[in-house]
């Protein structure tokens, strides 16, 4: 069994100027629920060891639908409360350009949270190839040499080839040659990339941003197919988190009279391959799902994955 927690924000909109606090409330509730610990420090420490912590964003869709800065800020605040040095937090992507286009301010200095791409001078990729199945890639030195643990922060999206872009697909941003591994709906390539040692071993937690779900037309931004789900999907099992994300994408596709991803010829079949590699649970009957809603005042209650 794997555990997945979905936290939904029950107020109508994210209040202007309070976004970071709202994300923080959602994260605190989600991490407590996932870990079974009341104390937020203990709950996060259950997954994230002391040391340098990476946050892998997804900034492909620029400011329109990338990992929100507020999410990184809120998570960073919790990590700092937990005792992590501010400069030991690294928000990263494959390129600095993508981070900047999503609104992040680059910082490779010794002060404050760091934020940079693998293309930053002095970073780059591993000297040796990592292999799994037929996939061979260099892995970002952020994972191989810089961080002690990583939190994967993807955005929940449809993907024109893979079907689903969430936790596993976001890890394409950790390798040097992602364009080579998109055939056959990214299957089994997405699974093998997630199976590279430094990726598999350093990734401790997945938090999928599902505030606005791009249920069709992804992975770029297409305003015609965006749903306000207002949720976060949290798990230490990236495959199970993706499986729940897939339910949400399919739900909105059905609601909007779109064919299933299977019928749209882009089934997210790489999830099954990931399960076969032992990376997590794809079988939804083996996923323990907890869904909670939280409002502006931090009052939480149990709810369902979808509105009635």
């Amino acid at each position: 069994m794997s555990k997945v927690v979905v936290i939904r924000f029950s107020s109508p909109i994210l209040a202007k100027g309070q976004e970071k606090e709202q994300y923080k409330l959602m994260l605190q509730l989600g991490l407590r629920s996932l870990s079974g610990e009341d104390d937020i420090k203990k709950s996060l420490r259950k997954y994230i060891p002391a040391g340098v912590v990476g946050m892998k964003t997804n900034c492909l869709a620029r400011k329109f639908n990338s990992t929100p800065i507020y999410l990184c800020d809120a998570l960073g605040a919790i990590l700092i409360e937990m005792g992590t040095e501010e400069n030991d937090i690294i928000i990263w992507e494959r390129t600095g350009r993508e981070l900047e286009m999503a609104g992040y301010k680059l910082n490779a200095s010794s002060f404050g949270k760091r934020c940079f791409g693998t293309d930053t001078n002095g970073v780059g990729y591993s000297g040796d190839f990592y292999n799994s199945g037929d996939v061979n890639s260099l892995v970002t030195r952020i994972l191989t040499e810089v961080v002690d643990s990583n939190i994967n922060l993807p955005v929940l999206k449809d993907h024109s080839i893979a079907g689903l872009s969430a936790a596993l697909k976001n890890l394409y941003g950790a390798i040097n040659n992602p364009n080579k591994w998109h055939g056959n709906n990214c299957d089994p390539f997405a699974a093998h990339i997630a199976n590279f040692d430094p990726i598999k071993n350093k990734n401790k937690l997945t938090i999928i941003d599902a505030m606005r779900v791009q249920y069709n037309g992804g992975p770029g931004y297409d305003s015609r197919y965006v749903a306000d789900y207002k949720g976060l999907i949290i798990s230490d099992d990236p495959v199970a988190a993706d499986r729940i994300g897939l339910e949400i994408v399919e739900h909105y596709r059905k609601l909007n009279n779109l064919p299933t991803l299977e019928k749209a010829v882009r089934p997210a079949k790489y999830l099954k391959s990931a399960e076969k590699l032992g990376l997590g649970v794809e079988d939804i009957t083996k996923i323990e799902l907890t869904v909670s809603a939280i409002d502006l005042n931090g009052i939480a209650k149990s709810t369902k994955l979808f509105d009635e």
């Binding site: 492909l60 869709a61 620029r62 024109s160 080839i161 040659n177 992602p178 364009n179 080579k180 998109h182 037309g217 992804g218 992975p219 770029g220 931004y221 297409d222």
Partner: peptide
Amino acid sequence: GGGIECGLCPRHCRVTDLERGYCG
């Protein structure tokens, strides 16, 4: 319905917004 199809090489990559072909 969106996206492009590259006709430069026999791979004929279909590429949606902000994505790249196999060549990278």
